[in-house]
Write a protein that binds this DNA or RNA. Structure first.
Lengths: 129, 129
DNA sequence: CTTGACCTTCCTGTAACTGGAAGCTTTATT
DNA sequence: AATAAAGCTTCCAGTTACAGGAAGGTCAAG
């Protein structure tokens, strides 16, 4: 199949597929005599795997490591574990930050009485030491 | 004062200060005969304002609008409001996404029995349709 | 035989910086 | 006074994960 079909099977744009090939996340596709890239079922699987990782917000660099490690059948899967746990930790840190943020923004949002700029409580808060 | 001093007063690096000037978030600094930038108290205030906005994760483009709007004393402060509320909304969307994410990652993290790569449940899940 | 869809590569832009090179000026030390 | 170190300048490249678009080749349909 050609690139656009792979794209529609996987929900990953053709542009992005080429990009993944560029950075070595996907192997170099076989080319026809016309220079077109041609793909197989296997590529659908690979791309879906990548897409699923992306949904977990795993950075491409880590996804690459996951892809590579899949080839090494008998190795222990500590690397996989680590990536997932680190990701989970990142998410938790982000959650904590967003909580603080939400509280601060809520306070700020509530303080405005829709006055004129020069009396705006929001701006006053933002300027405050 | 020179740029590094402004940096230390505000907690914004000299590099970043120059960058802010470049993109027009800060006004062009006055230069001495040597080409050095020189700053006043006012600039400390401006930068602290920006820093506070940054802590709320307001994008620089929006911070710029806040900076500009501060000059227009008698205008209604609807723009300010809007930016804050949009920001709050963004944060809430992000929180929601992170919640889903955390759940998914937790499930994944718990399914691994530290086996070999070829039997790794995490990878199996990631490959699953 | 031409139109339109699809393919290719390459370049640019995004957000908000950070790092580093090359080359001044100023300050401190010897 | 000479020199070294710190601080300043500009400019270029890199970061992340692509998207948009130009220029040009290819293929199927009418």
């Amino acid at each position: 199949m050609k690139i656009k079909q792979l794209a529609s099977f996987t929900g990953v744009s053709a542009k992005t597929i080429r990009y993944y090939e560029d950075i070595g996340l996907l192997p170099k596709a076989k080319r026809g005599g016309n220079g077109y890239r041609y793909y197989h079922e296997q590529d659908v699987t690979s791309l879906k795997f990548i897409r699923r990782c992306k949904e977990l917000r795993i950075p491409l660099a880590d996804i690459k490591r996951l892809v590579v490690v899949q080839g090494s059948g008998n190795a222990p899967c500590r690397q996989v574990d680590t990536i997932i746990f680190q990701q989970l930790e990142k998410i938790r840190v982000a959650q904590y930050e967003l909580e603080q943020l939400e509280r601060n923004l809520k306070t700020l949002a509530n303080c405005c009485d829709h006055e004129q700029i020069k009396d705006c409580e929001i701006l006053k808060h933002l300027r405050a030491n």
